[in-house]
Nucleic acid binder design. Structure first.
Length: 554
RNA sequence: GCGCCUGUAGCUCAGUUGGAUAGAGCAACGGACUUCUAAUCCGUAGGUCGCAGGUUCGAAUCCUGCCAGGCGCGCCA
């Protein structure tokens, strides 16, 4: 919508240039904004202030000239005012908004989409929780935010691919296998001390029981070396399948699952290290191999290959991110839990060492979730195994409320998640407020059908019957959706959509209580039904990008 | 000690990247159902934007220093 306004202003500039009133040797970017207060108009621009210097004219004089050309022969503009030092405030004609509203209905499910992203190839990596235990609520927030970001970026015209990185290499896999092996023996009657280094959760026992069900006691007499590969692999598969099930249940699907192991199988880790060595960013010291990350963002250099010859997690991460670039992605976005923020500078350093532009790589941190139940903190500790799993929360609260709660706050703000509140089907719970609006509109359409009214082709609807100020408030809010989506995608800020929807829906509820849509006046009813249809589409698409359902009845 | 995030109404949070009188929801109080869903609406009250300086026509927003909370500072993953 702002694009159209920019075009109008640009036309006015052309006219002013042709008439010789303005020189316009260099025209700055035309910034169009929405005034905070509606009484200033629908759009405003500070262009005349920006031009004042190069034109050597007073801002107000420039504004005068532009005003004249804006008004001249332009029926879409209702009025143009100059305010303050030289702000140009535009008020648009009703027809301007109505003609755009028609497009909302035409676009349907696609309303909100744009080419803001210009088809940029984005790799969005999120969750990537270690496959050593089930997902907890913290992962859940990352999953919800990442999944929504994926949808948002797609809608805003980015070519996005989502990926889960599986850390299936290293000591933790051995520890996992040993944990299951120990539980296996324990269940079969061999009492030994269960090491505090092992994974303590009850799910390890579940896996051990599965193995007993399927294979019986066949491993019991063998040595740990013999059985470990099996226990390691079985536990990994079992946990990973659980994670996949949990995510699927939560409405989160990935385009790719990427195994860390494949980096080693394909020699990519060695290649990446050698490549950086050739670039003089890798050196040997004290029997280890180091990256000179301190030459970039990092506070010190980091070890890639330990004295023991083992590679660090960081080392394969380098290969992984090089691989992302080699796959042709132009923007690499990682979503990490806030507890990993100390890792950001060294990863930034890696991409700089590789010689890539700073803004191809972006780490987005998702802050912690504090789970409460009726005001009381629910403890979370992976060690003790007493953590609240994502699956438990989803079972208790439902997918819609869980996702909405994860998505309604800025990601870099700590989240208080009250299970009791999320469960409530009452107005205190914001997700119901929005879903209810959708159901309410559907109910209006059911009523209309009862009265024998259904929406005809747009040519049979007289939209000029929409005259009420509240109706135009609604229309303007609907039309803002596409820009909100684009902005949220660009800034990677998912919470804007939840706030937008709440605001949109509040306007609807107010309208609903003061106006009847279906009345004896058939022409007016049809015009209002059309507006309601566009509103329903907007709410539906907004909830859809959040991965939250839009019920037709509640 | 160093680094990152946060600090805005009693509570939970927005605040369009420096703009016009700082906004929502919940909680509190008072109203509104003979009507398309009252899971709603309308109104009242609630503020030293953590504190102190600075930058300028203008600061919740930018800079500096403190204070408080969270998280992190491995040849772990």
């Amino acid at each position: 919508m702002k694009k159209v306004i920019r075009q109008l202003i640009s036309n006015a500039l052309d006219k002013a240039r042709k008439s010789g009133e303005l020189e316009l040797s260099a025209v700055p970017e035309i910034l169009v904004e929405k005034p905070k207060d509606e009484k200033f108009g629908d759009f405003s621009t500070s262009l005349s202030m920006m031009l004042a210097k190069s034109e050597r004219k007073k801002p107000r004089d420039i504004a005068d000239i532009l005003c004249r050309h804006l008004k001249n022969g332009e029926s879409q503009i209702a009025s143009v005012d100059i305010a303050g030092p030289g702000f140009i405030n535009l008020k648009m004609a009703p027809a301007f908004f109505l003609s755009r509203l028609v497009k909302v209905a035409e676009l349907g499910d696609q309303f909100g989409s744009s080419d803001a992203g210009g088809g940029k190839k984005v790799l969005l990596e999120f969750v990537s929780a270690n496959p050593t235990g089930p997902l907890h609520v913290g992962h859940g927030r990352g999953a919800a935010v990442g999944d929504m970001l994926g949808r948002l970026l797609k809608l805003a015209g980015y070519n996005v691919s989502t990926e889960y990185y599986i850390n299936d290499v290293g000591n933790q896999m051995n520890t996992l296998g040993r944990s299951t092996w120990a539980r296996y023996r324990e269940i079969l009657g061999i009492a030994e001390e269960f090491s505090p280094d092992y994974y303590q959760g009850e799910y390890i026992r579940d896996i051990a029981r599965e193995i007993i069900d399927q294979r019986g006691k066949e491993f019991l007499d063998k040595s740990e070396e013999e059985v470990l590969p099996f226990f390691r692999q079985y536990s990994l598969d079992s946990i990973l399948n659980g994670i996949k099930d949990d995510l699927s249940e939560f409405g989160v699907e990935f385009d790719q699952w990427f195994n860390e192991k494949s980096l080693y199988d394909d020699q990519l880790v060695d290649k990446a290290v050698n490549w950086l060595r050739e670039k003089k960013h890798v050196y040997d010291k004290e029997g280890a191999v180091w990256l000179n990350s301190s030459a970039f963002d990092d506070e010190k250099d980091r070890v890639l290959i330990k004295q023991t010859g083992e590679k660090t997690y960081f080392c394969s991460d380098i290969a992984y991110h090089k691989n992302k670039i080699d796959r042709g992605f132009e923007w690499i976005v990682d979503l990490w839990g806030a507890d990993h923020h100390g890792y950001v500078p060294r990863m930034n350093s890696v991409l700089q060492a590789m010689g890539y532009d700073k803004d191809v790589f972006k780490v987005m941190l998702v802050q912690f979730v504090a789970l409460t139940r009726g005001g009381e903190k629910v403890s979370m500790s992976t060690r003790s195994g007493e953590f609240e799993t994502l699956s438990d929360v989803v079972k208790e609260v439902g997918v819609d409320a869980t996702r909405f709660f994860f998505l309604m706050r800025s990601s870099d703000s700590h989240l208080d998640f009250d299970l009791e509140l999320a469960k409530k089907e009452s107005p205190e719970n914001p997700v119901f407020y929005i879903q209810y609006a959708h159901a309410r509109i559907c109910s209006i359409f059911r009523k209309a059908t009862e009265e024998g009214l259904s929406l005809p082709a747009i040519s049979h609807i007289d939209l000029s019957r929409l005259k009420d100020e509240e109706e135009f408030t609604l229309i303007k809010k609907i039309l803002a959706f596409t820009e909100i989506v684009g902005k949220s995608a660009e800034l990677l800020e998912v919470h804007r959509i939840a706030f937008y929807l709440h605001d949109l829906v509040a306007a609807f509820h107010g309208y609903y209580s003061r106006h009847r849509v279906v009345s004896d006046d058939v022409a007016l009813s049809l015009a209002r039904l059309f507006l309601m249809d566009c509103l329903r589409t907007t709410i539906h698409n907004g909830l859809s990008v959040m991965g939250v359902s839009a019920p037709e009845q509640m």
